[in-house]
Design a protein around this nucleic acid. Structure first.
Lengths: 81, 81, 81, 81
DNA sequence: CTGCCATTTTACCGGC
DNA sequence: GCCGGTAAAATGGCAG
């Protein structure tokens, strides 16, 4: 194995490239999201409102999970398995 | 004014030091928080549960503000001032 | 666009859900990235340094040296060596 | 500690509220820091570079050069010059 | 071009 | 003492 300064260069390069490929994928998805926003805007919806709605829905989900989590943790605390 | 490389060194130093002082203050407050947790733990409370509770309360607050915000934004959207 | 619960409402919901689906996809990809980092970590690479590497590869060389130079100037300004 | 709504509940609430108060304080300090940055920005300093400066001052010199060296090694490993 | 919001990175803390 | 996950800080991107 080629060693540069004690590092397996080939292996490192492979990891880096895998990550960069995944980051590209992510960027693609992000662009699709933007397109949906544009489309919505094009038929008259307000992007600001849409974002606010999305945020609110996320918060609701998070709240629900936190609540469930808290319940679990209480149950554990009083010895319920 | 002393100029080093075109930069007002004295002024920069002052800003940096002000920030560092504030960061120290923040660290102090953080330590007080830790002490409260320790104290609670000492009388038998479960830190994990406490954190969960705090998080839940924060989410509730955030949710409420988001909701109000959304309402505002809807009102604006339909021309209510 | 001011009708609520009608066609526009349905359409808005559709947009929102499309976006949420895409956001889930994005989250998946993000997790895959994390897994690659873990794997790299598992064979001994330093994740923090890998991140720096990725950032450097993203930055145009010009910007990179520009930033480095400015930092030197500031350091000189407050007498850091 | 399993009673709910009794002494323990009251005590728990007190701890939670003390922590929330301290967290508010922390947030205040954080805002003051932001203000100093704004002020600095207002007279022409580059905030990003100031942050780097602060970080450098925090890091022990040893750690600093260690990191820099490791980065060089990795760069060499994947053939970045 | 400015301010705001999301994302990403860094630091911290409790558990093991 | 490390490790994993959680919260804070910093960077980047978008809308107005």
């Amino acid at each position: 194995m080629t060693q540069v300064g004690g590092i397996a260069g080939e292996q490192l390069r492979t990891f880096i490239e895998r990550i960069e490929r995944l980051e590209d994928e992510k960027k693609d998805v992000q662009e699709q999201i933007k397109e949906v926003f544009s489309e919505a805007k094009g038929v008259g919806f307000d992007i600001r409102i849409m974002r606010q709605l999305l945020r609110l829905r996320r918060l609701r989900d998070a709240d629900r999970s936190e609540q469930e989590e808290l319940l679990e943790v209480y149950k554990a605390a009083i010895g319920m398995r």
